[in-house]
Nucleic acid binder design. Structure first.
Length: 272
DNA sequence: ACTGGATCCTGACTGC
DNA sequence: TGCAGTCAGGATCCAG
C-alpha cells in the first residue's frame, strides 16, 4: 500500500496520540509478519514512554528509553488510532498498542509483508536502516547526487529510483509519476541520462512526493490516514493506472509495460 | 559488483 | 453464481 507520502501521513496521524504516551499494553494476535514479532516485545515495551515517532524511508520508528520499535507497513499494512469503545479486531488486525490515556493504535495487514521489530539502544541504529539511501525530501537529495549514483549503471532509471539504497521512499506509483514529470522514459538506463535531466528528475521526485503529502496520500484501494480520512492524490495521478487514456500533455495514449515485475506507466509521446 | 527473478501472503477484480 | 487466473502500493535473498 504505502509509499513515503502514505507513511508520512500515517506518522503525522499517530504522532499526536503516541508521542509522550506510556505504553499500557501491547496485544499481539498474530506474530507471523514478514519477520516474526519478537516473543518478548510485549515485556520490553509495556510501561515505557514513547519519546518520538519518526520516519526513515518507509519505516516508522518509535523511540523509547533504552530502545525502540521499528515498523514497516509492507504492501497492505495500515495503522489506525481508535478511541474507546474499541471495536473488535478483524481477522487481519495483528496487534493493538494501548496507551496510558486510553487510545489504541491498531495495525492491520492482510498480506503480512509488514514487520514490527525491537532495537535495543538507539532505534536509528537498526540494521535494516543501515543501508538506506538518502531521504528524498532532505537537502541532501539533489540531481547531482542521483547522477553520481546512476550515471554508470545499466539498469532502467525506474529501478534506480525505486532502489532504497539510492533514495528511500519512492515506490511504484511515484516512480512512474516523477518520470512522467521529468519527461524521462522509465526503461532508459541510468548511464544514458544527462546530468541536466537527472536534476529535472530530482526536482520531479521531490515535487511529486511533497504534493502527495499535501493531498493526504494516494488512496487506491483502501488507504486511509490514521484518523480514517482517505488521501486525494490519486486524482492527481497523471500516468499511473491510466493505460490507454490520453496523455494530458500530448494526447498520446498512456502505455503500460512490466519492468522488474512491476507495472510501469508512461507516455510514449513525452517520455524519452 | 550488478542484475533479474523468485518469494513471502491475502484480497479484489476479471473473464469465462 | 462459481471458479480459475491475474494483479496489487515492498523489499530481501539468491543464483548467475
Amino acid at each position: 500500500m504505502p509509499e513515503l507520502p502514505e507513511v508520512e501521513i500515517t506518522r503525522r496521524g499517530i504522532a499526536p496520540f503516541l508521542e509522550s504516551a506510556e505504553v499500557r499494553r501491547l496485544a499481539v494476535r498474530n506474530r507471523n509478519l514478514r519477520w516474526p514479532i519478537p516473543p518478548l516485545l510485549e515485556d520490553r515495551v509495556t510501561g515505557r514512554t514513547i519519546r518520538f515517532v519518526d520516519r526513515r524511508g518507509k519505516y516508522l520508528l518509535f523511540g523509547m528509553d533504552g530502545g525502540g520499535m521499528l515498523l514497516h507497513l509492507g504492501m497492505s499494512g495500515s495503522l489506525r488510532v481508535l478511541s474507546r469503545p474499541v471495536p473488535p479486531p478483524g481477522p487481519h488486525d495483528h496487534f493493538d498498542l494501548e496507551t496510558g490515556d486510553g487510545h489504541t493504535m491498531r495495525f492491520r495487514d492482510p498480506r503480512r509483508f509488514g514487520c514490527l521489530l525491537w532495537q535495543p539502544g538507539a532505534i536509528h541504529h537498526h540494521p535494516l536502516l543501515k543501508e538506506l539511501g538518502v531521504e528524498p525530501l532532505s537537502a541532501e537529495f539533489t540531481g547531482d547526487m542521483l547522477w553520481a549514483g546512476g550515471r554508470f549503471r545499466r539498469t532502467a532509471i525506474k529501478n534506480i529510483l525505486m532502489n532504497a539504497r539510492v533514495v528511500v521512499g519512492v515506490g511504484n506509483i511515484y516512480a512512474s509519476e516523477a518520470l512522467f514529470d521529468a519527461g524521462i522514459h522509465p526503461a532508459r538506463t541510468g548511464n544514458r541520462i544527462s546530468r541536466r535531466r537527472y536534476q529535472a528528475l530530482a526536482s520531479a521526485v521531490r515535487a511529486t512526493l511533497q504534493q502527495a503529502i499535501e493531498q493526504g496520500g494516494t488512496t487506491l484501494r483502501d488507504f486511509t490516514g490514521a484518523t480514517g480520512n482517505p488521501g486525494y492524490f490519486h486524482r492527481s495521478l497523471r500516468v499511473y493506472g491510466r493505460e490507454g487514456e490520453p496523455c494530458e500533455r500530448c494526447r498520446a495514449p498512456v502505455r503500460r509495460v512490466v519492468t522488474g515485475q512491476r507495472a510501469t506507466f508512461y507516455c510514449p509521446g513525452c517520455q524519452r
